[in-house]
Amino acid sequence: MEGTSDIKSVFWLGTSVMLFLAFALVFLVLFYQNHFIKMKRNEAETLLKTALDSEKEERQRIAKDLHDSVQGDLSAIRNFMVILEKQTKDQPTHSLVLETKNAIEKAIENTRTISSKLMPPLLETAGFSAALKDYLTQLSVLSGKEFLFKTDLVAVQLPATFSYELFRVAQEFCQNMLKHGHITQALFALYATTEGISLEIIDDGVAFDFKSAYQQSKGSGLHNIQSRIKSMKAELVQREVTVGNHFVIYLKLSL
């Protein structure tokens, strides 16, 4: 009788302990992996933020160097060329001097454009809306396509970090529209939402699925967009449309 009771006890105790240990192991592994993934994500986010910050700083530095140094030197050379142009007015070398002066003026203009593209001065002085509006106006002139901008956030200023990242995202979208989308018209609309702001990007170009294009893409454009969206902790939503593409970027902000 005692043996029977012993077997019963050992059986139920042993089975319970073994089952407990098996489930405990599974839950422990799941918990640890979850913790491990979070740690890795945090690490990746920090790395991404550092990379984007360094890129921004480097852009700022190059833009400043181009503006203060190269552009300054070129302006000085142009001034000399103006004097030289006057002095050689009736000489056979005059046309050559004139051509050189024009080339220098073109170089100054190009340097200014590059410097502005690297770090739009309006972004710091007038904010995101003004910088994007200016950029889209210039792009419309240069590309011959219609880039429109609408906003109800005239008086509101976005924080500097978000302004820069959002501007770069808009820039990447524009480059994609021109390079792959073959658009004729695009609209950028910036609105206030209950939780922050939303930037709608609508075009009439070649339709594409962002997610699958991002997974297949070997270039840096879509990856840049995704990285910046991630660094802002924003959300990119693609809406279904019959023609072209419609994206909305939701950014949580306390305005």
Binding site: G3, V10, F11, T15, M18, F23, L25
Partner: peptide, 26 residues
């Protein structure tokens, strides 16, 4: 893996004690 782990852990005492259970008249 979870299925295997739980199944084999939960049944090992049953398989080890099957003969004893019968021998004890249970």
């Amino acid at each position: 893996i979870v299925g295997l782990l739980v199944y084999f852990s939960g049944t090992i005492f049953l398989f080890l004690f099957s003969e004893e259970i019968i021998q004890e008249g249970l």
